[in-house]
Design a protein around this nucleic acid. Sequence first.
RNA 1: GCGGGUGUGGCGGAACUGGUAGACGCGCACGACUCAAAAUCGUGUUCCGCAAGGAGUGUCGGUUCGAUUCCGACCACCCGCACCA
Length: 971
Amino acid sequence: MANDRYNAREAEPRWQKIWDERGIFKTPNDDPRPKYYVLEMFPYPSGRIHMGHVRNYTMGDVVARYKRAKGFNVLHPMGWDAFGMPAENAAMANKVHPREWTYANIAAMKAQLKSMGLSLDWARELATCDPAYYKHQQRMFLDFLAAGLVERKQSKVNWDPVDQTVLANEQVIDGRGWRSGALVEQRELTQWFFKITAFAEQLLTALDKLDRWPEKVRTMQRNWIGRSEGLRIKFRLDPATAPLQEKEIQVFTTRPDTLFGAKFVALAPDHPIANAAAIAAANRGDNTLLTFIAQSMQRGTAQAVIDTAEKVGFDTGIKVSHPFDPNWKLPVYVANFILMDYGTGAIFGCPAHDQRDLDFVNKYGLGNTPVVCPPNVDPKSFVITDKAYEDEAGTLINSHFLDGMTVKQAKEEVASRLEKDIWGYKLQLPLGTKERAATAEKPGTLVTPASKDALGNPLPPPFDISWEFDSKSYQWGLGSGHWIANHRYFDRSVIGQKEQFEERKMLHLTEPVPVGQRQVQYRLRDWGISRQRYWGCPIPIIHCEACGIVPVPADSLPVTLPDDVSFEKPGNPLDHHPTWKHVACPQCGKPARREIDTMDTFVDSSWYYSRFSDPWIETAPTDRAAVDAWLPVDQYIGGIEHAILHLLYSRFFIRAMKATDRVGFDEPFAGLFTQGMVVHETYRTADGAYAAPTEVAIVPDGEARRATLVSTGQPIEIGPIEKMSKSKRNTVDPDEIIAAFGADTARWFMLSDSPPDRDVIWTEEGVKGASRFVQRVWRFVREAADLRPHATVSASEFGPRAVQIRKIAHRALAAYSADMERLRFNLCVAQVYDAVNRLETELRDAHGPQDKEPDPDVSSALLEAAEIVVQLIAPMMPHLAEECWAALGRSTLIAATPWPVVEPGLLLDDAITLPVQVNGKKRADVTVPRQAGKEEVEAAVLALDAVKRALDGKPPKKVIVVPQRIINVVA
RNA sequence: GCGGGUGUGGCGGAACUGGUAGACGCGCACGACUCAAAAUCGUGUUCCGCAAGGAGUGUCGGUUCGAUUCCGACCACCCGCACCA
């Protein structure tokens, strides 16, 4: 009996059927046991699973099965990230409807996942392209809109003129569309945005509390959010050189300390003042600035373009005053490297302490003044030529009142001075005046000059007050009998010789507008979700000429996609549809147009994990009680490629759901694990073509390995190990592996060699090793099962050999459990190997010579040990484990069996062997009782021959005894 | 440029809070079984050395009775972001 081989191909489907029939992986929502939610990132239904999926879902399944055995009510669901471009590409290529294509793929992949033996609750399966799912997404879009978390605004996009769609930055390759190859244009489009920036600070600070996330991911998110603290500073335009409506340029800086080193101010090409200046110049007949701006704007966003683009500026001839000295004029440039969408779209350049600014002044001959002198450098000889000093260590020089300060002090000093230096107020006009409606929304800026500048130079008194709104200009001043003091507005009258002031309520000066304002700036941008595609979640909005933007009423949801679409023409099929977009306005009933954009598929994946808590509920996205009970996800597992977008969007989405009362928690994923990739050798023929692993034969050649093409025998070059990809042809098909070796072998191999967060190298030899181990376990268990008739005694009668066997099993159990809690699956595997290696030897000894009966206590211990081994492999190789469990005479399912309990007494030995070092070099071992005191150990050590020899008869200087660890004799 | 990470046998990798470096697997070598091969099983496998012994965790230095682990400097590679003011 013990000789027959384990037949995975027969056993695996059999056990899968039994699990299915008994419904043991169905998870109730009303189970009183503690919950555990383990989730792997759901797949895009491309049609076939790949090895990356196998690794991802194996890890999740191991955790699910382990936690289930540990007594948790485990939620382990699966779904499909089913919207997206590939379905439309397939529709165009094969004339198949995206829905059919998607659902056929889901069916195929579901069968593949089932063949892996995953312990999933398939009753909770969902697909994001199902109206039953996306109607809730539309509902939440409207909730977010009402809560002010959705915005419609103009934004620059990459526009593919051939495909007539917006492209993500990643889809622009060398300035061309990835599909069409057409030159990508920059277009301003009105798009829908989720205001993720509203949560920027929260999303950043909460990262600190996500202590079960990889540090790497948290760092990446921190950088992506990109918080920096600085100062927004106003530079007044010199009216003589700037015949513009605007009076000032605002710049953002993180280095206000270097303000006295300023040499120029530069504007983004699309800055409003740059445009105004260009138009003003053009009206004078000078088109050069207009041309310069147009050229700068044509630049693509592709990396190659940015890297090679020359930094060029255009001197507008405009001057601004330095904030601390109105007589100090700085030139204003328009420069192609200033970004409109960061900070204020304008900078002041301090060349001595910013490399880019230094390159710029060196090109245009503007010079530089160092204002921060590095430590231990003589300020008099400190000169900057072509390398800027960007460090913040040092002392301020050439900076008037800042001289001698540290950078930190100077930053603070500049900020606090400019904050106090108020020369403007935001203004609200009196209620009831005809201007009110306009100003309520658009306060004008009231400008009153300060009496003295920061250096103490006198300025004209602040008598004349002017403000502007709606392109009209207003003035009050002494002559008009009005006065402003302490941010309040007074009527002034002169009675006799005496001035009288009466506060007027009708004019409210609200916020003072100082010259400098501290500002926290984020790199994070709002999330543009509009996509000009068909196969996505429709945005539930109707555009009405009379009513404007009208949300689709909640009772009309979902807005479903039309089925009869054509992909013949480029552009958005929803736009081409003859009737779909034409609807009556829900408010006025007049003809109106549907929003034809659909949502970014990242929206679909931003909340699916919460839907799993109760995927049946029809009236709401989630059942509040269920979602608050199940979430956050205890362990989320997926690829590092989602470290930023998917995870950040999800963190935003849950906060938005909380703000709209859908959930009662902040973070979706308490624990995150990012698994490594599956990589494989590449193979190339002499002519450079890639060959697939199945086409190649590997032959050992002494130490090295050679490869030949199976079909022709021609030699193959073994190339570098790379991520499995179709283009490199180094993929291995999970179906073929499961058919040849079984799912358990594939799962075991995936968990074996590499730590789970690192890349795993898929090798034929490794898979064979795993397969070999499957058979070894089977044989070991069958041979142990043969001992059942002899296993007649209980643990109290065990002799030393039986105790030794139990120690092996229980120690493996304890170590395995500890490694499992840390998700160190490779170490769990090593523990199992080690235990089986030892137990096989014991088993062979127990069977002993043919004529001798096995000892009853040893037999009992071996049976117990075999059961523990089977339980250890059960999370990883569930089918084999069930087969072994049955072979050991168990009638239950191991998948529903509690985790074995470690017997602590078996973990420690009474006598321990410690290494003995002399001067830090190991010279001997000493065996002492566990409880031995220091003196006893020291005596035993000094009696050792090896120690005596090393000491050469002299007494030791010192003996260090680390209890139960090591002894070091210092000679 | 900024940020993060990693360097240990032929290879993937172990080593908890400073305490026997190389667990476990792959590969390789030898042996058993076999007419033979495959499969399987057993033994060995960091390097130098017949051995005693010595060297050894990217490099150099430091702290310590003792360092893969802590500190400093450097080198190499990988990943992420990047005209971010």
